[in-house]
Design a protein around this nucleic acid. Structure first.
Lengths: 229, 229
DNA sequence: ACAAAAGTGTTTGGAATACACCCATGC
DNA sequence: GCATGGGTGTATTCCAAACACTTTTGT
């Protein structure tokens, strides 16, 4: 092996905070560690960065290995570089957060179900390494982000209803939002395409299915439009 | 030397985007590289992370080496992990941005002045590595940040005037702000302590000197107060 | 006296919130 | 019919931008 530098260097890893939405609550995907250290404890998915891949690629690779999903919303969160965060040796970790559609994920999970599990925000177990800190930062980030970036859609199917979207906002922001104001506000953005379809098997009046007009959003964004809810 | 891992690992570096304010414009500190690669080109201050220091410490160390200043506002910006960003080998860099008082800096600069220089935002030369991208992101970050975090004060002396503070906002946001609205708004926060001193040698009416009430801000922040301008 | 910038107060328009009301569907 | 939630419109409150006016200081 080649060691060109005269001194030791930290190892570089990535971790992913994977958010999903089950229709009611925001959830976070954790895995149960199979090896030491922290064996049998819950942790964020993660792994080391190869020398021939970018850190973004490493994060995507890890996400794919863990959930089978690809091409999802993913963004760098923060880099954690305390000295003792890993008992084995010095490891610096770049944390990412990802938004996935749980329904997509379900299709692929089966293989090794017991070691990966969705947790709601208020039932998070104690985590390995400094992963609680990472998770906390991810939750704060998503709370701030959802206000001024249309990321709620990333957690839903292509076709969704406005009440579903509202449930995401309420779950992430942890507060109730007036149903009618939310409806009016989201409609006024002009970024929703209303379909001629209704929600199926609704207990009562069925909601209209809509899609997010991503093309329109990207065009407006280039012209300086700032999304806000 | 000890190489415990079976495969090559990326090197880990930090870079600092150092902002200062000269009373008129926002400035950025660049250094002229003395060695290859990119010898004689301008670049962001930076260096490798030692295995026995946190990444934050590495950034502070580098800032101190470069400007002599310490205990300034500093925050992690983003981590850059493209494969070819350094022609020598694979280097991942954690970028930071810092806000310094140029007057503090002046006291120490003398030693090796020619290789470090302040640049205004619109006179940035072409930079080494991917540092233009880093700088662009830092500028966007500070533009967003100054709206909802009281960081303008970090660029001024302890005693400053409201028009000076406004000049910082205008310089960072690159737009004019109504003088009177700014005055009223910043005053209404209650976070300024008005001193019984006036600005010296003003061309005309002297402005009142004020200080930022950091203690009060921190207390309010804990209670959920959100600064905003 | 006059110019220039500091400091104070009022008006106004638009956005956010609150909320009344009607509609569709299952039981 | 009635309970439940979807969909629409309006009133009110509040905040930010616009702007008129007064004060202070140097020349």
């Amino acid at each position: 092996m080649d060691c060109r530098y005269k001194y030791e260097r930290p190892a570089l890893a990535i971790n992913c905070v994977i958010f999903g939405f089950d229709g009611v609550k925001l959830k976070i995907l954790l895995i149960k560690r199979g090896i030491e250290p922290f064996k049998n404890q819950w942790a964020l998915p993660g792994g080391f960065v190869n020398v021939n891949e970018t850190i973004d690629e490493a994060a995507q690779r890890e996400l794919k290995e863990e959930t089978g999903v690809d091409h999802v919303f993913m963004e760098q969160l923060y880099t954690f570089g305390s000295i003792d965060r890993d008992p084995r040796e010095r490891v610096v970790s770049v944390a990412y957060f990802a938004l996935v559609r749980i329904s997509d994920y379900k299709l692929i999970a089966g293989s090794d179900a017991s070691n990966a599990q969705w947790f709601t925000m208020n039932s998070i177990p104690s985590l390995a390494f400094d992963h609680s800190v990472i998770l906390e930062m991810a939750i704060n980030r998503i709370k701030g982000k959802i206000r001024y970036q249309p990321i709620g859609f990333e957690l839903l199917d292509d076709k969704f209803t406005i009440p579903q979207l509202q449930a995401i906002y309420e779950s992430i922001l942890e507060r109730k939002i007036d149903r009618r104001n939310f409806y009016n506000k989201i409609k006024k953005t002009g970024l929703l395409i209303f379909l001629d379809e209704k929600q199926q098997k609704a207990a009562h009046r069925a909601a209209t299915l809509v899609t997010f007009d991503k093309d329109k959003y990207l065009k407006l964004k280039e012209q300086g439009y700032a999304f806000e809810i």
